[in-house]
């Protein structure tokens, strides 16, 4: 529910309100992670490391539903719709372009909400491993989640053997998005 500002406000103020959007969204990913079966059996250190390296990618998947690739618009949860052009003023043009492209590919797979949630769990535990101490435990959790995702998808679409591989191919896309864009700058006013 991002209150990106009407035209009257300066781009700095727009930037601040856009930056504020991320705080609740990140907290929701942390709560989501804690609900993933097995995630809290990992060491606290490894939970924090996975979240630090995977949260941006999970957010990218979550934000997909806000993007309309055909109309090139973004509709925030408060109902405000913005064209790609108007959002370029925020200086996130390249990230937005990449997001439109990614959401088009992911959207075309037509996942159900529970499949999308399980995919986000896979995204999180597939995040960068540098800094992980008990790699074996994380690998085991990842394997279990991938198995669950595969059986959920194949049970619903027994005659479609291409969907699951296509879905896993989105993981490298997300890693690229993360490497290219997680260093975008945010700005917070300190009164």
């Amino acid at each position: 529910s991002c209150p990106v500002a009407p035209a009257s406000r300066s781009s700095q103020e727009v930037w601040e309100s856009f930056s504020q959007c991320f705080t609740p969204a990140v907290k929701e990913v942390v709560e989501f992670a804690k609900s993933i079966p097995g995630f809290q059996t990992l060491s606290q250190h490894d939970q924090v490391m996975l979240l630090k390296s995977g949260t941006f990618q999970v957010l990218m998947v979550r934000f997909c539903s806000l993007f309309d690739p055909k109309e090139r618009t973004v509709t925030f949860l408060n109902g405000q719709t913005y064209s790609l052009a108007s959002l370029r003023a925020l200086g996130m043009g390249s990230l937005l372009d990449a997001m439109f492209e990614f959401s088009e590919k992911l959207g075309s797979l037509g996942l159900e909400p529970d499949e999308m949630a399980l995919f986000m769990a896979v995204v999180l535990v597939s995040a960068d491993r540098s800094g992980i101490v008990e790699v074996g435990a994380v690998e085991q959790l990842q394997e279990n989640l991938i198995k669950a995702l595969r059986s959920l998808i194949t049970s619903r679409r027994p005659d479609d053997s291409t969907l699951f591989p296509k879905l896993l191919l989105r993981l490298p896309d997300l890693r690229t998005l993360n490497n290219h864009h997680s260093d975008k700058l945010l700005a917070f006013r300190i009164d």
């Binding site: 991320f22 990140v26 924090v48 949260t55 941006f56 260093d183 975008k184 700058l185 917070f188 006013r189």
Partner: peptide, 25 residues
């Protein structure tokens, strides 16, 4: 004058996660 703290998306995410886990310890 208003002062600003500028940080990357990644640092902002790390900051929130560290805070959350510290609070729930």
């Amino acid at each position: 004058p208003k002062t600003h703290r500028v940080m990357t998306l990644a640092d902002h995410i790390s900051h929130i996660i560290t805070q959350d886990f510290a609070r729930n310890q």
